[in-house]
Structure formats: C-alpha cells, structure tokens
C-alpha cells in the first residue's frame, strides 16, 4: 500500500489544535508547582505504603499499591483538573479561546489529554518500586501490567469527570468538590451493594469504577471492562463539550 504523506499530514493536522492546547496545558502544569506536587505525592504515599507493608506480608507483589493509588486519585485528580476550565471562565480567557477557529471538542480533548498525561507522568516514578521488587523476588508480571493499564484507564475516567466538574463552575474550589464527590460516588458503587435493592445490584456494580479496575488489575483484560471505561470516558467528555457550549443557549 502506498503511503500518501500529504493525506496523512492532512489527517494529522486536524489534531494540531488539540496538540497545541495539550502542550500549553501540560506546560502550565510544569510552570506552576502542580506537576511537581502531584509527582511527589504519588511517590511519597505509594512509597510509604509499599515499604511499610511489603516486608510484613513478605510477598513480591504490587497489590498494595494498586489498592492504594485509586484512593490517592480521588484527591489528586480533582486537584489537577479543577483549574482546566474554571480558571479560564473566571479570567475570561475562555472568550478568547472560543472565538478562535476551534471546535469545542478540540478544547476539551486538548485539556483532557494534558491532565491525563500529567497523571501518567506522575505514575512513572512508581515503576522504581516495581524494579526493586523484581530484584527481591519472583513477581507475576500479569497483574503488574494489568494494574498499570487499569490505573491509566481509571485516571482517564477520573480526569474526564474532573474536567466536567471544572466546566460547570468558575470557582476552582467548587470544581474540586464536585469532582471529588462524583469520583467518590463511582468509586464506592461496588462497595455499597448491600444497601442496594436486589434487582439493581448488577447495574450498580457494573457502574462502579473500582469493580472494573480490580478485574483488570488481576491481569485479566476483559472486553466488558474496556467497554465500561471507553463509554464512561466518551460520555463524560461529551457532557463537558455540551457544558462548554452552554454559553450559546
């Protein structure tokens, strides 16, 4: 098959606006202290849990970490996402952004990807713990790969929720709280099944994000879980685009 470079670059240039916004947002995370705080928080909390528990149970596994990070996400992700749109609304720069020849979805996509990438970058240093475990004993790589994939997918959904929260208000604190509450609700769903009427348990369980995360973190990548993460992402991002278009109503 002949590769048509011109056509390819035309397709890619459709995403150049997303790329421009992505770079700007990611750079502003690193220009401010946000990025470094997030990285340090991950390293510190995960490191503390890791060292304090692993030698006790004496098993070469990252299970503890994969149970803990979703909880850390609940606080870190809304802190990362709260400014994405709320700040622009407050400062009025949203008016500059939306009067440029851009689609609203490009703004949402660029911002979403930047915050997601930041969480991904913050997870990278935790690989140090993996490497040390590899030296200490035999480790089953399946759950590790599954765990990281699951964390990234979960982070994606959380970032989308946080972005939606940020699009609803111009107050960053409010955006943080809305984001935290929504994420916490999805996190808790599969843990409160005893309080749920019988006929709804399977639905509520399916909606719970931690349920799908634990499936993947076991090292089993099932299409149902992938569909869950994919549709959650798509739906939440769509709502953010709608919320951004609200100015036109």
């Amino acid at each position: 098959m002949k590769l048509n470079i011109k056509e390819l670059s035309m397709h890619l240039s459709k995403f150049s606006n997303v790329g421009t916004i992505f770079k700007k947002e990611l750079r502003s995370y690193f220009n401010s202290a946000v990025a470094y705080v997030v990285i340090v928080v991950f390293l510190a909390i995960v490191g503390w849990m890791y060292t304090s528990s692993m030698f006790l149970i004496n098993v070469a596994s990252l299970r503890m970490m994969f149970e803990l990070v979703p909880l850390v996400f609940l606080f870190v992700v809304p802190a990362v996402t709260m400014r994405l749109l709320a700040e622009e609304k407050k400062a009025g720069t949203i008016e500059l952004l939306t009067t440029k020849p851009l689609h609203d979805w490009e703004i949402i996509a660029g911002k979403f990807l930047a915050a997601w990438a930041l969480i991904g970058i913050a997870l990278l240093p935790t690989l140090i713990y993996y490497i040390t475990i590899v030296f200490l004993g035999d480790i089953d790589n399946g759950p590790v790969i599954g765990g990281y994939v699951g964390l990234l997918l979960m982070a994606g959904v959380y970032v989308a929720i946080g972005l939606l929260a940020s699009s609803l208000t111009e107050n960053q604190i409010v955006a943080f709280i809305i984001g935290l509450l929504l994420m916490f609700a999805f996190y808790m769903m599969d843990k409160v099944l005893i309080f749920v009427p019988d006929f709804m348990t399977s639905v509520v369980e399916y909606l719970g994000i931690d349920f799908h995360f634990s499936n993947i973190a076991r090292g089993v990548i099932d299409s149902r879980d992938i569909v869950y993460f994919g549709s959650m992402l798509g739906f939440t991002l769509y709502l953010s685009v709608v919320s951004l278009e609200k100015r036109k109503w």
């Binding site: 421009t20 502003s28 220009n31 400062a91 720069t93 009067t99």
Partner: peptide, 22 residues
C-alpha cells in the same frame, strides 16, 4: 475582549505563539 483577559502564567512570546498556532 472586555477587561483584556490573558494567561498570566505564560510569557509574552509563549502566549502569542499559542494564539498564532490556534
């Protein structure tokens, strides 16, 4: 726009480049 909103954490060249790219 009214009140001249700007990204205060960007430097002048970065900001103008960002606008230009968009």
């Amino acid at each position: 726009p009214e009140m001249n909103p700007l990204y205060l954490d960007m430097n002048v060249v970065e900001y103008l480049e960002y606008s230009a790219r968009l």
